[in-house]
Each structure stands twice: as C-alpha cells, then as structure tokens.
Simulated scan of single mutants.
Amino acid sequence: MPYLSPADIRSKTFRRKRQGYDPGQVNEFLLIIADALAGRLRLNPDHIRTVRFAAVPNGYDPLSVDGVLHLLEFQVRNGIVPPTGLNSGEDLRARKLPRSGTGYDRAEVDAFIARAAANLDGRGSMTSTEVRNTRFSTTSGLLGKGYQVQAVDTLLDDLEQELRFRGR
C-alpha cells in the first residue's frame, strides 16, 4: 500500500461489516492523524497503535481500519508524507476543480489559485498558515457558480503541505 497524504487520509473510506468499528470515532481519529502528518499538531505514534474504537452494528471493517492505522503509525513515527505534486504554479493550475451548483465561490477560488500559483513560482510570500486559514464564500445553488467543497479543500491541503515543506 502506498503512503497516504493528509488529503488521502481525510477522504478515506472503509468497507462495512455487520459488527465493526464506530465510523464516527474512526473518522475523527483519522482527521487527527492527517493534521499530524500535515504538521499542524504533534501526535505520539504509540497513540495510533493503542487506539481503541467502540464496536457498533454496520461499522467499519476492523481488519481494514487496523491495516491503515498500522501504515499511518509507521508514517507518523518516521515523518513520511508523500509528495504533493505541486512543484510549480503550472502544477497547481492543472488541477481541475469540479463545478457545482452549491460550493465555494468560483471567482474567489480562482483568484486565490492564481495568487498561490505565482507563489509556487517564487513570486509571492504566501504561507502554509495563510492557506490553512483561508475561507471562501459559498454559492446559493446557482448552476455552475461554485466548486465542490471537498475538491477545493483537498487542493488546499496539498498546497498547505507543499508550502510547509518549503519552510513557509
């Protein structure tokens, strides 16, 4: 299994079993791990190894969750985060965001991406903290006026991670 990026972790899903781990607890813990790999907080890798989840009907498959947690413990212990693929502004602009009737305002997102792309090309001083704290207005259902929220958030995760690696 390849290493997981913070964005991969945030969007991770698992098969369900008749009796399995509480999905809410698992998802909440995965968000903590994603933040740790993104450098937003410190997490003792032993905590990943020893975490316990409640068993619930129609929960996540324990074997699948445990396998991912084993990989993530190794990643956190060794500080392994896969590359983002955002080496230049061109790489950022090449990521196509799906449009949506509701979602983040396209004009705001496009302006931010233009500024971030220039920054990746050495023209600007954007920081990972600025990316993490960025907020966009949402659209009210007008056809095609927004970008899908999850896709934009995933792109912001990658951009934040890239800037953090660059020491910004």
Rank of each mutant, 00 (worst) to 15 (best):
S64Y: 14
G85A: 13
A111P: 04
E108K: 13
R77C: 09
S88W: 00
E28T: 12
S140N: 12
K96N: 10
M126N: 04
T84Q: 09
I80K: 15
S137W: 08
F53V: 09
P23H: 08
A114P: 00
D121R: 07
F112W: 15
D46P: 01
L31N: 13
L92S: 04
D105M: 07
D105T: 08
R123F: 06
I113W: 00
V51L: 01
V68G: 01
S125W: 07
S100G: 12
Q19N: 12
D66L: 09
T84K: 07
G146A: 03
S88L: 01
V26W: 05
E28F: 07
T127L: 11
T138Q: 14
G101N: 15
T127E: 06
D46C: 04
D61C: 12
L30T: 06
E130L: 11
P83S: 12
P23Y: 08
N58F: 10
R49L: 14
D121K: 05
D46H: 09
R52S: 09
Q148D: 11
T129C: 02
N44W: 03
A36L: 06
R40Q: 15
F74E: 12
D35C: 05
D121N: 13
L43H: 03
D121I: 04
N27C: 03
T138A: 10
G89Y: 00
L143V: 13
L97M: 07
Q150M: 14
G141C: 09
V65H: 08
R99E: 09
S125Y: 06
K145I: 00
H47Q: 12
E28R: 12
E28N: 06
I48M: 03
N87F: 14
D110Y: 03
V131I: 15
D105W: 02
G89H: 01
R93T: 00
K96H: 11
V152P: 00
A94R: 15
A38H: 05
A118S: 11
L97I: 02
F136A: 05
R42I: 07
P23E: 06
V26I: 08
Q75R: 12
L69G: 07
S137Y: 05
G67E: 14
T84A: 08
I32F: 08
Q150N: 15
S125P: 01
L86H: 06
T84Y: 06
G79Y: 10
I32C: 06
A116I: 04
A116G: 06
T134A: 15
A111D: 14
G24P: 01
G20N: 02
A94V: 02
V65G: 11
A116D: 03
R93A: 02
N58W: 12
F53M: 10
E130N: 05
A114I: 05
A114S: 14
Y60P: 01
R132T: 13
D66W: 07
T134I: 09
Q150K: 15
V81C: 14
A151T: 05
A118W: 00
T134V: 14
P23V: 09
G144H: 02
L92K: 01
R135N: 12
T50Q: 10
D110T: 11
P62H: 08
F29K: 05
